[in-house]
Nucleic acid binder design. Sequence first.
DNA 1: TTCTTATATAGGAATCATTCTTATCTAAGA
DNA 2: TCTTAGATAAGAATGATTCCTATATAAGAA
Lengths: 143, 143
Amino acid sequence: MKLSSEQINQKLKDAGLRVTPQRHAILEAVYTLGNHPSAEQVIDYIRVNHPGIATGTVYNVLDVLVDSRLVKRVKTDKDAMRYDAIMNRHHHIYCAETDRIEDYFDEELDDLLQSYFRKKNLQNFKIEDIILQIKGNFNDNSE
Amino acid sequence: MKLSSEQINQKLKDAGLRVTPQRHAILEAVYTLGNHPSAEQVIDYIRVNHPGIATGTVYNVLDVLVDSRLVKRVKTDKDAMRYDAIMNRHHHIYCAETDRIEDYFDEELDDLLQSYFRKKNLQNFKIEDIILQIKGNFNDNSE
DNA sequence: TTCTTATATAGGAATCATTCTTATCTAAGA
DNA sequence: TCTTAGATAAGAATGATTCCTATATAAGAA
Ligand SMILES: [Mn+2]
Ligand SMILES: [Mn+2]
Ligand SMILES: [Zn+2]
Ligand SMILES: [Zn+2]
């Protein structure tokens, strides 16, 4: 997913955030890297053009972006956090053997789940969001 | 879920593992604590009756138990790992505000998902497992 | 039962991701 | 242009986890 510089600024503004070069670079990195980068991958990416951005700033900004709903955290059973700039409803396919996490979009499935849980009407909690963790193995080796 | 001492030993043996007091205590802790304890909760629990077990041993043993499929890791968007002794297929309800993670069992849903993905027949990967992350808020305050 | 040894553990140092602290800087409204 | 609330740099600190290695032990063999 490629966004123009202006689109990135606009997203920051719309979220009520001050536009700084650091925030711009980091949000752009999460968009450009795709496939759920770790903070370290973001750091390596931005350092090329912005060698001065501090490590702590990357973590701070990622938190701010998550709080502002410009980015999501992706749940993992590894130590390092992963981030996702795709805010549209989608699910995640976890490779059983590597750290690869692929997106899975399926509106038909989302409708199915929604109507299933509406019918089920769980009593003691209100569902905000449902994400499938699909664990498996890729046949090919592509990204 | 309460298991007898013999049942725990048997599980370790069946997995081809040497039965040690450390492994016994740690596996028992994960069963007894329930609700997806962290390593730290396991440590606090076993220290009461086994003050000598080293912290590193708890992490080692938890890894061994995961490799031997006696315990699962639970995906989280927090730093600390969580563990689960319930190996039957089930889903997880994540509280949006706290670290509470509840189990959700639903065979009807599992069948629905299975037939949905059988029909869908995804081309480039083989599904091993599907777990729902249900995020929401609990109405009550119970465990 | 004792012996043997491959494997497991204790204890503590080390690592790594992340957070914290504080002096300095700057985005953006007045 | 001025002002200042809020953001960042730099590096120390923290917390979860891993690593190292000398010692201990489970469990099969004798
Ligand atoms: Mn940590
Ligand atoms: Mn960590
Ligand atoms: Zn995604
Ligand atoms: Zn569970």
